[in-house]
Design a protein around this nucleic acid. Structure first.
Lengths: 342, 342
DNA sequence: CTGTTAGCGCGTTCAC
DNA sequence: GTGAACGCGCTAACAG
């Protein structure tokens, strides 16, 4: 390990030079109003000149609070999280708070480890956007005295506050829509490692069962959710179900792969084959034909989650708010127009 | 601000309960070999039972070093950075180091602010993957005593070590390839805010000039690099240059938009129209036709950058290594086969 | 508005 | 192999 500069300027150095006590310098930085303007001006100048930077560790230790909060994400590689992150950043901007992201790689152990680390840093708050080991992590989280916000399915219990989507309902809506468009042999393409995905698959199954069209073998999943996975899954699905006429994808990227593969093998979309995605990622609007999908307010969710943490950290609000963000079906060109009456 | 639990278990509490001195407990955690096995076992158990978690702030303050390093990224929304991040994570995994990401939003001020914050936290190291305000930030970075690794174009000077790609050369290679394929009116689509993009545009211009085909108006750029931007840029470009027969895109997502738009307006790819991307993102292999692109070892770059930071932080290597990672042209279906001889 | 006293929780140094 | 004393740099609580 490398040492920091041992000659780094400290609060004490500045105070000595200014001929005041350290606490005055400290106050100039934290409660400027409590220091007389002249003194403040002089000290501020000295701080600048001497290149003083407060030591966060010392600050955190002395004051027992920390201005950075952690965001645990199960996969940063998921483009859906990117909008979410941007929402967080937007809320944090112009705030003294800082965000620390950590990737849990869909791994419960890693999730627990990260939570412990955050706790050990006396973190200002935690946003949990992965929910793999919810039960196990919940145990840890209960001990936390800092605000905890989970981003989950609306039906799952959460330890603290939550900002969520009813994924089950969203997938149900999409499935119903596909049925209304007249598709019958509808597959579900998802991932194995994501709880949200399992929720969505639930909504799909419910509607398909109600329509008497459910078949276990219509549910496909792959570990690595990506456009290439969409290609493979469609290929596999068509082998088993040559009469497949639509796919509901757990995420737009899968749908992108499905769309290209359908094109390659000469399926006409949407006439012979319907595709519905999830998330309404940027590219969804410009595929050919444009992708029908479920829009989820990812940016806003990030913003709200950060908002809850920040406001709670400042003691302005309760910790247990539950926010349901809603969703929207965006009907575009990869599905036929719905039929007037069933 | 909210207070941490004042009743949090400390090293001292554990020591008291174990009937030993605090330092022994501390050693169990950091230098287990120096404590007798029985004592160690007993203490480890107590730590578990009492739920003791070390306070990082106290640790950092006392030891003067910090096990988390910062990664400054100009835009986490750029999918190219995601592989880069994964590379970093991979190197860090099973290490005591932690990573803290910060988004600089292509903003010099923000970049400076973040660097200052990292410095004030006595960070273990800094990876700078945005390079907007290089000159201004360099000033700050020179004062750093921690390892600094920049991820930049190979021709740019860096303050510390660097892991880089010769973006100019890469774009030149791609442009030459398009020429070899017989395309003549080749546009360049890029972004305005990214230095890497400017580098690539340089390589494009150089080759086009040499071929006597350069025209300023063939260079297009948009702030927000995305698939929709690709659609708009192609639309705009074809208005001004109806005879356009190829596009070199600064990033695959633009190319995706271009591909779909070309499809929509009935251009035959690659016969009448060539497209080349950059980065070889996951979907590049499965578009229809598959995307010709420049592959850049993003994952490896992240891995190497983290490796440099970690090894330097551990005092094992020099700070000024310059690593050139190379690139590779992946010829796929969005370009015609190259002609034997010009 | 300014200063004094005390101590945050841990690691370093040097003893035993 | 184990411990005592001290201090990291800063802020809380109380004086004045």
């Amino acid at each position: 390990m490398r040492r920091g500069r041992s000659d780094r300027t400290t609060l004490f150095d500045v105070a000595k030079k200014a001929g005041v006590s350290p606490i005055t310098v400290s106050r100039v930085l934290r409660e400027p109003g409590k220091v007389s303007p002249e003194l403040r001006g002089r000290i501020l100048e000295l701080i600048e000149v001497m290149g003083y930077v407060p030591d966060q560790a010392a600050r955190a230790l002395a004051s027992k609070h920390n201005s950075t909060f952690g965001v645990l994400i199960s996969a940063m590689t998921n483009p859906a999280f990117i909008s979410f992150m941007r929402g967080i950043e937007e809320r944090v901007r112009d705030t003294d708070f800082r965000v620390q992201y950590a990737n849990t790689h869909y791994c419960v152990e890693e999730e627990k480890r990260q939570v412990r680390l955050l706790l050990s840093q006396n973190t200002a708050g935690i946003i949990l956007a992965g929910m793999e080991g919810l039960e196990q992590v919940a145990e840890l989280l209960k001990q936390a005295t800092c605000p905890v916000v989970q981003v989950v399915d609306v039906n799952l219990e959460s330890v603290g506050a939550s900002v969520s989507i009813d994924h089950t309902e969203a997938a149900a809506t999409a499935t119903e829509y596909l049925l209304k468009c007249g598709y019958r042999r509808i597959a579900f393409f998802g991932g194995t490692s994501d709880e949200r995905g399992r929720r969505r698959s639930l909504g799909y199954s419910r509607v398909m069962k109600k329509a008497g069209l459910f078949q276990e073998s219509l549910i496909y999943s792959e570990n690595n959710i990506s456009a290439p996975a969409g290609v493979h899954l469609l290929h596999a699905a068509l082998q088993e179900h040559p009469d497949l006429d639509a796919v509901l994808c757990q995420i737009d990227e899968l749908a992108l792969g499905v769309l290209f593969e359908a094109q390659r093998i000469g399926k006409r979309v949407p006439e012979d084959f319907g595709i519905c995605g999830y998330n309404d990622l940027q590219f969804a609007a410009i595929t050919q034909p444009p992708l029908t999908t479920i829009r989820v307010p990812l940016f806003e969710m990030g913003y709200r989650a950060a908002d809850l943490v920040i406001r709670d950290a400042c003691g302005q609000t309760k910790t247990r708010s539950v926010v349901n963000m809603g969703f929207e079906l965006i009907a575009r060109g990869t599905t036929r127009p719905p039929r007037a009456v069933e």
